[in-house]
Amino acid sequence: MISIQNLSFKYNRKRTLFENLNLELESGSIYGLLGKNGAGKSTLLYNITGLVFPQKGEINVLGFKPRNRKPSFLSNVYFLPEEFALPSISISQFLKLNAPFYPNFNSTKFYEFLNELDVEASSKLNDISFGQQKKVMIAFGLACNTKLLIMDEPTNGLDIPSKSKFRKLVAANISDEKLFIISTHQVRDLESLIDQVIIMNESNMVLKASMEKIGQKLSFKTLDDPQEEVLYSEESILGKVGVVLNTEEQESKINMEHLFGAVMNKGGLVKEIFSK
């Protein structure tokens, strides 16, 4: 669905952001794009949606070159930016003005999502808080039924119950034909939601793996064996917890924060583990 080959991108002459980046993303998955602030997550998403143009390399999304920004491409992609400017109109008016651009838009679903996210459908967009506005945009993005849904830091501004509802809604709306990419630096927000992880650090893709593969390769546990090579550790009430190589093929619950810590800590080693 998304194929990126030898992508090189820079905003200016001095700072190269991507150099020969390769990435293949398939439909039917929710990808979590993780990385610290400034790691290049948003820029990668901008390249995928044709909002910026690469200096070198090929990007193919849904069979289109994103930089052409053809309506037939854009009507199958919904990009929810981290911040947005909404006009001073009601939600129903917003729907009336924007939904016709998306041929598969489902109004009934939109109002269901709003209800699920506790947003008053009769509200005016400018009268509600940023968190509520974000919920409207999330509901709209999901109701667009586009093949590709990209959300940049969607949980920013959401309260804890809303984050949980967000995860529920996203998980319920993925299908085999769709691909969701959720970019965030709040790694815990995506726990139990994503099935593929992409971790970026300093403009490099350090890890791209399915949750299943991560579970096979790494073990997330209380560390009691001093001989084990620890990829990441931290103190907790239970003692020292962290990430080690899963040599005994034990099943463990993936802790996204620890995984992220391991990648930031020993990126080279993690890359090597997953390349085998």
């Binding site: 920004r69 309506p71 919904y78 930016p81 947005f84």
Partner: peptide, 9 residues
């Protein structure tokens, strides 16, 4: 972003 991702040519 909102302007350029709106499906129009």
């Amino acid at each position: 972003i909102q302007y350029l991702t709106l499906p129009s040519s």
